[in-house]
Each structure stands twice: as structure tokens, then as C-alpha cells.
Design a protein around this nucleic acid. Structure first.
Lengths: 211, 211
DNA sequence: GTCTATAGAGTGATAGAC
DNA sequence: GTCTATCACTCTATAGAC
């Protein structure tokens, strides 16, 4: 993957390797080899391995937020806005699968300050969904429910797609997005289905086995 | 955390550290220090760091499958079976949070053979949910939908809970399980809500930004 | 079953030539 | 902007005493 712009080449190689082997299991030597340069040359472009990771996560989060905001611009009612938000979330995570997979798996590689930066961006993104859930519940379109827990449920369904999705697989991104969109909207809707006290028989066993 | 049984102490310390810092970021020295012995003594109990990881993941998966099977024994109709399955899944993942978090995050630390073993166990577990979805659809209780995608959606909602759940937090395990149970059953149900072609406006922008 | 000591390899990062 | 050479350190794992 040679490029006129070595800084971008290094980033692209790092995304491949971090997604494949993980951040800690990937060495600067690995990234240098993939980029066609010596490992010392990496440090001309990035001051440290951690800064390279942060750069990947930061640009991914910035692009994610910009993408959903552009898609939501001018969209009217709450239900359609939620549909657009879900579809936007799925498309971004499957089209930029590796970066998003890294963003979910490798936060522990960040320094404390950088960790806080990324968490702040992630929180801002989550609040977009939480506002939509609240609006929908206030308008009587969605069932009442715990807004944070529901937002985590919605986001992780799609985020997890970045872990198993295969671009050459059975289903297209749009097909997967359509399935998630319907599943999530049905789950949120105030429908014939009772929401609330959640009946099920008590579970008779401990998760820790017979002790 | 001293114990009469050093092998179990080492395992318990490793679960704490792998969950907190990650498998690759945790050294044998760290585990030894936490266990109150020298690092060489670890190798009397486990032949390698990778075997220790495998032991944790293997016992977790075995217990997970045994737990859901015991909870499902004698439960009648498909809808109730799905409710029990979801609740069982949530409870296990939140009660044994750290082990499950490791099981999801650290599969890449395994050798090829051990990786295959764990994937086989995970697949067997997923098939339990896929069978329930198929049964429900055949009986007309659940909407038709892609069985694999839906099973991944259901399982990841709860699995992700192991990443953010705090035992001393706002909601109890049972409260979270009830929310997920209702959300998932509503999502699966053939209800007033249309399932299928998934309308939403096309997204006008590329996930890769303006290029 | 735990210890001390160490082998052998790899790590992130830096110095300084070109 | 990339190179060679190297520093200082950490890592997993083993040998052999007790």
C-alpha cells in the first residue's frame, strides 16, 4: 500500500494491523514493515505509538459525529429521525469497519488525557440518540423506558456489527441496516406489546454454579 | 486475595487484571505480585500465560451453556423460553461481568487451536437463540427475519452490558434484564408494526467524508 | 510448591549521519 | 524524510536450589 503521503500510509497500515492483531500485539516494527520504511522513520510522522492510536480514534469519532449530523439535517419527525440515526450509525460502522472496531476495543491503550477526550466525543454522540428516545417517549411514539440503557442497547447492536461483518458476505450493508432499523423501531414502539414489568419465571440457578 | 488454593487465586487475580488492563498489557509479574508469589511460581500452576487465558475463557463458556440449559429445562412455550433465555444471558453476563468481558475482548490472545475451541462453544450457544427465533417465526409469534443477524443483535445487547455495568450503579441486574427482555421481545414480535422493507430516506453523504 | 537467577528475544524510543 | 545503530527496559519462560 505505497502512497505519496507516508503519514496516511502509516495510519492505514496501523488500522489494518490494530484491527487484525490488536494494539498491544502490534509493534512499531510491524507497522514500519507494512509501510515499507524503517521503524525509526515512524517517529518522524508520529511522536509515539499512543499518539498514532489516538489520531485514529479521534478522526473516527469526529467523522462519525459529523456524518450523523449531516444525515439528520432537515429530517422532520422523531420516528424518521431515529430511523435515519440508526441507518447512519450502521452504515458508518460497517463502511469503516476496522476503525470502528479499534475504537471499541483499544480505548485502554490511550493515556488518561486522550482517553477522556475520546469518551467526551462518544458521550456527545450517545446523547443524540438519548434525545431522540426522550422526544419519542414524550410524543407518545415510543414506549417509556430507561433512556440510557435503551441507547446503549441500540448503539451496541450496530457497533457489534463491526466485529463480525464481512464485506463479501451474504448480506449487504443496506440489508443489515434495514433489519436493525425495523428491530430497533419495533423494540422502541409503544405497541400492542406490553412494556414494563417483564414477566418471566424466576431463574432457579446461580450463575456461579453449584457452590 | 490469599487463598488455600493458589491455582484459583492466580485465576482470580488474572481475571481482575485482564479485565482492568487487558491480556497483553498484563504481565506474568503483575499476576504474581497480585497473588503474593514470585513470577516463576506461576508456571508451576499454569504452563503458559496463554493457557491461563484459555482456562478462564473455557470455564466461562462451559458455565454459560450449562446455566442457560438448566434454566430452560421444562419451560414450555417459545415466547417464555426466549424470555428465560434472554434473562439467563443477561444475568450470567452481569453477575460474572469480568470473565465475560474478557471472553469478548481477548479472544485474539489464544492460539489457533484454543481459538477454535472457544468459537465452537460460542457457536453452540448462539444456536440455542437461533433455534428459538426460528421456532417463534414458524409459530407466527415472531416476525420473519434473518435468524443469524437477529441472534447477534440479541446477544450483543446483553454482552455489551458486561462492559458498562456497575454493581453499585443506579440499576439492579434484574431491572436491566427486565428492560432488555421487553425491548427484545417487542423487537421480535409480529405486531402492529410493519417489518420488512424498512423505510427511511436515503443517506446523502459518504461515511468517508468529502473526498 | 516456591524460591533466586537468568536466558533469549523483543519492545518503544532516541541520536546522529546523510 | 529516511537511514543505521543502539539504549534501556520489559517480556515470557526455564534451570536448578531448597
Amino acid at each position: 500500500m505505497p502512497s505519496a503521503n507516508m503519514k496516511e500510509t502509516i495510519k492505514a497500515v496501523a488500522i489494518e494491523l490494530f484491527a487484525e492483531k490488536g494494539y498491544f500485539a502490534t509493534s512499531i516494527s510491524d507497522i514500519a514493515r507494512g509501510s515499507g520504511i524503517q521503524k525509526a522513520s515512524i517517529y518522524y510522522h508520529y511522536p509515539s505509538k499512543e499518539e498514532l492510536l489516538f489520531h485514529i480514534l479521534d478522526t473516527t469519532m469526529t467523522d462519525l459525529i459529523a456524518y450523523i449530523q449531516r444525515n439528520l439535517t432537515g429530517v422532520g419527525d422523531t420516528e424518521t429521525r431515529m430511523r435515519v440515526a440508526v441507518r447512519s450509525h450502521v452504515r458508518f460502522h460497517l463502511e469503516r469497519q476496522k476503525e470502528n472496531f479499534i475504537a471499541n476495543a483499544e480505548m485502554r491503550g490511550l493515556t488518561e488525557d486522550h482517553y477522556r477526550d475520546i469518551v467526551a466525543e462518544r458521550d456527545a454522540y450517545e446523547r443524540i440518540f438519548q434525545s431522540l428516545i426522550r422526544e419519542g417517549a414524550a410524543a407518545g411514539v415510543f414506549a417509556d423506558g430507561d433512556v440510557k440503557i435503551l441507547s446503549y442497547a441500540i448503539l451496541t447492536i450496530c457497533t457489534a456489527g463491526a466485529a463480525w461483518f464481512r464485506p463479501d458476505g451474504r448480506l449487504s450493508i443496506d440489508a443489515i441496516a434495514a433489519i436493525y432499523e425495523d428491530f430497533i423501531l419495533s423494540g422502541l414502539k409503544r405497541g400492542a406489546y406490553r412494556i414494563g414489568a417483564g414477566f418471566s419465571p424466576p431463574l432457579g440457578f446461580s450463575a456461579h454454579g453449584d457452590r
